[in-house]
Design a protein around this nucleic acid. Sequence first.
DNA 1: CAGAATCCTTTCGGATACTG
DNA 2: CAGTATCCGAAAGGATTCTG
Lengths: 101, 101
Amino acid sequence: MEQFCPLEYTLNFIKSKWVILIIRELTLGTQRFNELEKKIAGISQKVLTSNLRFLEENNLVERKVYPVVTPKVEYSLTNLGKSLQPILDQMTEWGIKNIKK
Amino acid sequence: MEQFCPLEYTLNFIKSKWVILIIRELTLGTQRFNELEKKIAGISQKVLTSNLRFLEENNLVERKVYPVVTPKVEYSLTNLGKSLQPILDQMTEWGIKNIKK
DNA sequence: CAGAATCCTTTCGGATACTG
DNA sequence: CAGTATCCGAAAGGATTCTG
């Protein structure tokens, strides 16, 4: 990912609707793949997977695989991932204030 | 634009790299189409136009046409547009802090 | 359960040419 | 100067099927 300025750099991590919904969901705590899929309305398995990979690659999310019979994989925010929350909060606040209709 | 929650609503306005660069440029003050085109490195005329239209439609930017011989059009942020600045500032701050290499 | 693989549509933006 | 019009390629994401 080539970035040109800090603003663009940050945007690259939060420009996707699904990414921010995943991050927001994970601020509630560690969750399994399955839980995320159920809670994030409308997300497909493929999109969830690829976005989680992206977040993992960029150290925003940690993936923990449990070597048990039925697969169990847990996702949680890293400290870096958690540090995005003020931005999401501010975006939410702006949205509440300015949403029309 | 159908939105589902405030977070997504806000994201719709800032998810584009070009949109945030335009807004940031306009925080410096009213500017002409031509100036924006020169200052925002790499933006094409088409993209600049369409993004300005988008911003205008959503009341984030005001377009002022002067009826003179050589066309003169000025763009400026509305109060709503200006109200996005804290979010962009926070994104910039996060980028400065976490940008790698 | 947690995915991988494949196919397909939509959207964004780059390139280029033209105009009142 | 400030656009419009057209063509085109890349990338995101939806739907579906299959698997260790």
